[in-house]
Amino acid sequence: MPEAVRELTFAQAVREALAEEMRRDERVCILGEDVAEAGTPFKVLSGLVEEFGKERVLDTPISEAGFTGLAVGAAMTGIRPVVDIMFGDFITLTMDQMVNQAAKVHYMSGGKWKVPMVMRTTLGATRRSAAQHSQSLHAWFSHVPGLKVILPSTPYDAKGLLKTAIRDENPCVFFEDKMMYKLRGPVPEEEYTIPLGKADVKRAGRDITIVATSSMVQVALGAATLLEESGISAEVIDPRTTWPLDEKTLIESAKKTSRAIVVDEGYVRYGVTAEIAAVISAGAFYNLDAPVKRIGAMHVPIPFSPPLEDLTVPTENVVFEAARELCAHA
């Protein structure tokens, strides 16, 4: 019998991925606000400056555009920076650096310059942090050719995907749901990586496919348990990366179950759910018994007041009800 797999929190898994990659490759360094002694407000990076020193774990001024731009240039010239954008809402300040610079350098230079950098940031509401610290804006980067966008949903995935992102030759944006940092899950001691662009079936099922991203995977798994009690077998699929997107796995599952729901914490309009629903609709059209259903954040700025905020994001019950309704279609 193999020993029970060790458990880590999501935050520990992220930290371990960074520590391992920094040990493996001395070009890897971390840049961001309060990343060194403070270890970020979420304490995700605690201990790294002690091991790797201030030359490799660098506290920056509160200048997201400046240090992200600096990371682009550093990545082009031999460093492998991992920038920390404390809240996903602050990616707006880095947009020119990421969208016009990082994403385009390789193509515009005819393939000559490369930008092997990672931006780590957060998404997710319900932390009572109001409209400027709660958004899930990963769809924005998913829209830009040249970037890769990663949305881990478990400690295991977080570690394996982050290690791959750090080794990738392209600019990668890694979104961590700040509400998941304390989530525990199995993470083996042994070295492993997870390829980008490969979806994971988090739970196999027959009657309906629930595609979910980031913490919505946990919501979908909860809904699947409720559905099981109602006699509905749900398959939960986590694409893990919005780009590259494992279209094949999504389509195959929808073909098998003939129904699909897509759950993502970003806004529904023009968002990740729209793209994935379109992929499934086009790819599995003749096998579907119902239109693909999309569930995401309400189209409002995230409100502060708890009872209001809770209305804006998908819950297990919302997904459960939607799935039941969909399964009622012949």
């Binding site: 400046g66 731009g69 240039g73 550093a74 460093i79």
Partner: peptide, 11 residues
Amino acid sequence: SMGIATGAAFS
């Protein structure tokens, strides 16, 4: 390109 230039100097 100001970020890029400064990043190259960092490297």
